[in-house]
C-alpha cells in the first residue's frame, strides 16, 4: 500500500506527538510525586508506598510548613530582599547600558567585556571578601548585605543585556532631542528608558527568579533565622523536620509559589529574557 506524502506526514506527526507526550509525562513525574507527597501523611507513605491509593488526603503538611516551619516569615524575607535588589540593579544597569550603547569613548569595549566577564565569574571567588566587607560595613546579618551583593553582582548580566537592547534603538530620536536642547539625562530618562520597557520587563522577570532563588549568599551573609529568605529557610526546615518528608516537600511547594506565579503570568517575558540575553 502506497502512502501519500500527506499521510506519511500525518503518521510521523502522530508518532512524534505520542513520543513527546510520554516524555513529558515522565519528565513531570517529580512534580506529581511532590504534590502527591505533600497531601499525604508520613505513616501512610511509609506503610503503603507511593503507588497505592492514599488512605486520606491532608492539608496539614502545608499548615505545619507555613507556621511551624516559618515559611510565612521566610517568604516575606525573600520579597524584602528581592524587590529592592531588583529595582536597584535595573536602575543602575540601564544607566550603564545606555552609556555603553550610545556613547563612543575610550574604554567602552573594555568596560562592556568587563561586565560580561563579571556575570560569568564563579561567585565563590567573592564569598570570603564580601563576607568580610559586609561585616566591616555593618551590614552583615541584615537585609542590606544581601541586597547590595545581589544589586551589584547582577549588574553584570543586566548591563550586558540592556546595552545590547539599547544599541538597537535608532539614534535619530536622541539627535532630535539634543537639537531641541534636552540634557543627556533627559534623553536617557525620557526617551531610552521608556523605549526599553520590553527589555526591562523581560530582564526584570528573569532577575526576579534568579535573585529569589539565591541560596549561597543567604547562607554566608545572614545569621538570624528571622532574616532568612525562603531558600535558606528551606535548608533550615530540612534540618528541623528531618524525618517528615511530606512537610518538607509541602514547604518546597510553598517556597515556589512566587516563581510559579511568575511562570504563569509573566512566562512570555521570562522566555524573552532568557533568549534575548544569550541569543546574540
Amino acid at each position: 500500500m502506497e502512502l501519500t506524502i500527506k499521510q506519511k506526514k500525518k503518521i510521523r506527526r502522530a508518532a512524534i506527538f505520542t513520543a513527546l507526550l510520554l516524555f513529558v509525562l515522565v519528565w513531570l513525574l517529580p512534580v506529581f510525586g511532590a504534590l502527591l507527597t505533600s497531601f499525604r501523611t508520613m505513616d501512610d507513605l511509609m506503610n503503603n508506598g507511593f503507588w497505592r491509593m492514599p488512605e486520606k488526603i491532608t492539608f496539614k503538611n502545608f499548615g505545619t510548613a507555613w507556621s511551624e516551619g516559618r515559611l510565612n516569615r521566610y517568604l516575606l524575607n525573600s520579597f524584602i530582599i528581592t524587590i529592592p535588589s531588583l529595582i536597584g540593579t535595573l536602575a543602575l544597569s540601564s544607566m550603564v547600558g545606555f552609556a555603553l550603547a550610545k556613547y563612543k569613548f575610550k574604554g567602552n569595549m573594555a568596560l562592556y567585556l568587563m561586565f560580561v566577564a563579571g556575570m560569568l565569574i564563579p561567585f565563590q571567588i567573592l564569598l570570603i571578601p564580601v563576607f568580610k566587607l559586609s561585616n566591616e560595613l555593618g551590614i552583615y546579618n541584615s537585609y542590606w548585605g544581601l541586597i547590595m551583593i545581589h544589586l551589584v553582582f547582577q549588574m553584570g548580566f543586566c548591563s550586558f543585556f540592556l546595552r545590547n537592547y539599547m544599541i538597537t534603538i535608532p539614534d535619530e530620536l536622541s539627535e532630535a532631542a539634543r537639537i531641541d536642547g534636552a540634557s543627556e539625562f533627559r534623553i536617557f530618562y525620557q526617551i531610552y528608558l521608556p523605549l526599553s520597557k520590553p527589555a526591562l520587563a523581560a530582564l526584570g522577570t528573569l532577575e526576579f527568579t534568579w535573585i529569589f532563588n539565591d541560596y549561597i549568599w543567604a547562607l554566608v551573609l545572614l545569621r538570624d533565622d528571622k532574616l532568612k529568605p525562603v531558600t535558606a529557610g528551606l535548608a533550615t526546615l530540612k534540618g528541623n523536620f528531618i524525618t517528615s518528608w511530606s512537610v518538607l516537600v509541602a514547604g518546597a511547594i510553598l517556597a515556589t509559589l512566587p516563581t510559579i506565579f511568575v511562570f504563569i503570568f509573566l512566562q512570555k517575558y521570562f522566555i524573552k529574557g532568557l533568549t534575548m540575553g544569550s541569543g546574540k
Binding site: 506527526r13 512524534i16 513527546l20 513529558v24 517529580p30 541560596y215 531558600t231
Partner: peptide, 30 residues
C-alpha cells in the same frame, strides 16, 4: 515543528528551570 500541544510541551519541559535549585534538590532528595 507544527505539533499538537507544542506550547504545553515546551512549558512542561522548561518548567523545572523556574524552580530554585534548593527546591529541586529537596524534592529529588526525597
Amino acid at each position: 515543528q507544527d505539533i499538537k500541544w507544542a506550547r504545553g510541551f515546551k512549558a512542561s519541559i522548561y518548567s523545572p528551570m523556574i524552580l530554585a535549585p534548593v527546591v529541586i534538590g529537596l524534592i529529588w532528595s526525597w
